[in-house]
Amino acid sequence: MAIISITNLKQGYGKTTVLNDINLQVAAGEILALIGPSGAGKTTLVSTIMGMLKPKEGEVIVLGQHMPRRESLAQIGYMAQSDALYDELTAQENLVFFCEMQGVNKKVQSQRIAHAAAVVNLTMDLNKRVKNYSGGMKRRLSLAIALISDPPLLILDEPTVGIDPELRQQIWHELHQMAAAGKTILLTTHVMEDAEEANQVLMIRGGEAIAQGTPAALLSQYQVTSIEQVFLQAGRDQDAHNRNR
């Protein structure tokens, strides 16, 4: 069963169309990387999948439910693009607060927090106020908050920005483990290395899906050696196609 199933999605604000004709299937245990330049519509797509926005056209089914649906958010772990944290509170208090908001059972709360903090290497800094955190630490805390409810679906908006290579590798190790345990992960990124770690890549440019598939399939389809080159080639094809229209 597909965890995320999108058919013929059209999305926009007012009269402007941000996303056009998006189709996507993500199975359980898959890692999907959403890549594209800023302004391409990645965050809009993520918002639509989470049900923050109603689809203009088409349908979005997440975990077997039509979106938007407020209750479904309990099963989605979300990491926002900007670090949406309470600066006056400590990291521990932020985690407890989001446990309560996400509806995490009190009995497992401390264990979940300990695990999430360990994944992002913040165990030693949990009692510091967030306002004293560095940019990278805030990013890691945001990721930890996405993990606390141990959700079947993780949606991470730019998770690797501001994180050093060593930690990035550690986080990817953890994400692969979670995927192996049957969790589905959707992440947006600018970083082509991230795309190479994913099972499936969806490239968005100007609100349209320009290439889609596993990294290996994309490399062979475009006869290139890196995802970056796939992206550039797909972009040129899109421009050529638009000129001919």
Partner: peptide, 14 residues
């Protein structure tokens, strides 16, 4: 402005 309201609404809170 800090984005926490959006983040908060990304939980199942009413």
């Amino acid at each position: 402005t800090a984005g926490t309201l959006y983040r908060l609404l990304a939980t199942p809170i009413k």
